[in-house]
């Protein structure tokens, strides 16, 4: 018997599209270059950028790491199978996900009325890794992708 049941976790965030030009302004750094990877920036228009930012924050909320800065560049949101968004965690984001004992992360993004909204879902294992011998879908820390 492995003990307590796994815990579902959910994170949600929304970003107004009007924030994107502000984050692209030279006076801001531009901040967006610290929040979207070059690959993400190449494939994002304003709505895409807002959706990705919302998705990164939604994923961050799964970690239970309030008080830490969002690991923007270590949380990459790219097209996955069937056109669904997929999240790839590296570095600090992968470490936080492992600390939270998260399984695969699923992600959904939508846009309406000048806003982007994203929801992220994962299951946090209650048992330590050694006791989860029958769970085949545990992701590795460096490559957690959404499964369609």
């Amino acid at each position: 018997m492995t003990g307590a049941a796994p815990l579902p976790r959910i994170g949600v965030d929304l970003v107004p599209l009007t924030r994107i030009p502000e984050l692209l302004a030279p006076a801001s750094g531009p901040a967006l270059h610290r929040m979207l990877t070059p690959r993400e920036r190449r494939m994002s228009d304003q709505a895409g950028a807002a959706g990705r930012l919302a998705a990164k924050e939604a994923v961050f909320k799964l970690f239970g790491a309030a008080g830490q800065p969002v690991p923007w560049l270590a949380t990459e949101v790219l097209p996955g199978p069937g056109g669904r968004p997929a999240v790839r965690l590296t570095g600090r984001a992968a470490h936080l996900a492992e600390q939270a004992r998260l399984g695969p992360i699923d992600l959904s993004i939508s846009h309406d009325a000048g806003w982007a909204v994203a929801v992220a879902v994962a299951v946090a294992a209650e048992d330590p890794p050694a006791a989860r011998a029958t769970t085949p879908s545990v992701s590795t820390p460096t490559d957690r992708r959404a499964h369609s």
């Binding site: 801001s28 750094g29 901040a31 610290r34 924050e57």
Partner: peptide, 10 residues
């Protein structure tokens, strides 16, 4: 907020 935090750092 979390978006503006990046701008604050800059």
């Amino acid at each position: 907020d979390s978006l503006a935090f990046v701008e604050l750092v800059y």
